[in-house]
């Protein structure tokens, strides 16, 4: 089975511009354009957040689509399920707005849609090859990659660091 891709965050790359949040909201708008999205009612919502980790880090936070997803287990109405692509999604027809998922999510990734009275979260942009936030990031702080490929990159970098200064 092919490995699904995840959104990884390179925290040292984020400059806190929040371009990802705009791209996310536009991707979840009706018009799919920025100038159209800002005129829509209700306003489209971003599913990615940029947090400030004092004293020096800006951290994009997006749903991890956990393998053992607490939200999915906790959802009392059975609205949360995992797709064949490994993406954890909320079925808005079934969602009753009890916010149990909000209580159990360790990352705080569930939002409340006040107009529709439903929970919302990252859906990994099912209509796009690369999620909008990843495509928009100007510094490459968001990486859309499979776990083995991402881990291999980290290993290559770490191995280089380990032997640095030891000569060849």
């Amino acid at each position: 089975m092919t490995q699904p891709k995840e959104i990884f965050v390179l925290t040292d790359r984020c400059v806190g511009c929040r371009t990802c949040t705009i791209a996310c909201a536009v991707a979840h708008s009706t018009s799919k354009t920025l100038f159209g999205a800002v005129a829509e009612t209700p306003r489209p919502k971003s599913r990615i957040y940029v947090e400030w980790a004092a004293p020096a880090h800006k951290v994009p936070m997006v749903c991890r689509h956990c393998e053992d997803a607490p939200c999915m287990h906790a959802c009392i109405s059975g609205a949360i399920r995992r797709t064949d692509d490994g993406v954890v999604i909320t079925d808005t027809d079934k969602c009753i707005g009890c916010w149990t998922c909000v209580m159990v999510c360790p990352y705080g990734m569930i939002g409340r849609d006040l107009e529709r009275h439903k929970a919302y979260r990252c859906d990994r942009c099912p209509d796009r090859d690369i999620p909008a936030c990843v495509a928009a990031c100007p510094t490459g702080a968001l990486v859309y990659q499979t776990v083995p490929a991402y881990a291999a990159d980290v290993r290559r970098h770490a191995s280089g660091e380990m032997v640095k200064g030891k000569g060849s």
């Binding site: 929040r18 949040t21 705009i22 306003r43 919502k45």
Partner: peptide, 10 residues
Amino acid sequence: CRISPFEDQG
């Protein structure tokens, strides 16, 4: 500073 164009989102 920058203002979020999407209400309640920043």
